[in-house]
Design a protein around this nucleic acid. Structure first.
Length: 276
DNA sequence: CACGAGACCTGTTCGC
DNA sequence: TGCGAACAGGTCTCGT
């Protein structure tokens, strides 16, 4: 489910607090933890995590790539939702989700709940979170992410655009939805080689990436199926999961293909594999 | 370095 | 209605 815009939407909500008196997450102290699926804990082990997380006060929450970053007064929590995770701050007495796996109990009767149907999500409690976050590529919405930087990184590689955009070490935050949507906005075929783009094409890709992400953010992310709720970007998809439907720009049927073992959606007319 | 296959998991939806 | 197959927002590791 969650790519950059979905994670960022959740971060903003947790940082400011919500309706019904839900407080901001920063400032709350962790009083205990419930682990219904210990596989959630990547590092350290469940026993050490249990021991070390109790009594920590969450000082902040922000995002790096698709990771939630929660510095505490001793150690930093990293949370990755992977495919089917969701993170909610709720009253302890609120009914719990069927797929609630991990709960951080907080002062004041609040709980940070990690729901995760597929159990792919992971939690880290690290003294040095950079050790992991350093592996990520640049943040596409940061001012430092310029068309020039993108161009340099593209030409340093020799891969198809689609799998490269999904590589978090190349660029942090895009997933299958936003990669497809970015390529359509850039009018670039997903199989175009990264080192074969003209300067205008690099610029289009840069703009396409940022437009897709910004639009996603504006709509609080995308909500598909039963997994994540709250976002409406799914109503603005131009290609993702729209195979057979007409392209909003030219009317040609959107195509679905498998590229790098993932579904890819594109308009064969607006995104030609090569120019004549 | 690039790429594909398989693994990790469970749930929903589709096709017969 | 039932049942198996296909498919799903993401990484990670291993072999070629």
């Amino acid at each position: 489910m969650p790519e950059l815009p979905e994670v960022e939407t959740i971060v903003r909500k947790l940082r400011t607090g919500g309706k019904n008196g839900v407080p901001p997450l920063p400032g709350l102290r962790i009083t205990g933890v419930t682990l219904r699926w210990s596989g959630h804990l990547a590092e350290p082990s469940a026993a050490a995590f249990r021991r070390n997380v109790r009594g920590r006060t969450i000082q902040d929450i922000h995002r790096r790539g698709k990771y939630f970053v929660l510095p505490t007064d001793k150690g930093t929590l990293l949370i990755h939702l992977k495919m089917s995770g969701d993170l909610l701050l709720e009253a302890a007495r609120a009914p719990r989700d069927r797929f609630e796996r991990t709960v951080l109990h907080l002062d004041g009767g609040w709980e940070l709940r990690f729901n995760d149907a597929r159990k792919f999500g992971r939690i880290y409690l690290l003294d040095d979170p950079e050790r992991r976050l350093d592996r990520l590529g640049p943040e596409p919405l940061d001012p430092g992410f310029t068309p020039q930087l993108l161009g340099e990184r593209l030409s340093a590689r020799r891969r198809a655009l689609k799998p490269l955009l999904l590589d978090q070490a190349f660029l942090a935050g895009l997933g299958n939805i936003y990669a497809d949507e970015a390529l359509h906005r850039a009018s670039l075929h997903p199989l175009r080689r990264s080192d074969g783009l003209s300067e205008p094409e690099v610029h289009r890709l840069w703009r396409g990436i940022r437009e897709a992400l910004r639009q996603g953010l504006r709509h609080n992310g995308a909500s598909l199926d039963w997994v994540y709720r709250g976002g409406t970007f799914q109503n603005h998809f131009r290609v993702y999961q729209r195979a057979g439907e007409p392209c909003s720009l030219c009317g040609t049927s959107i195509v679905r293909a498998v590229i790098g073992q993932r579904a890819a959606h594109y308009c064969p007319s607006c995104q030609p594999e090569r120019w004549p």
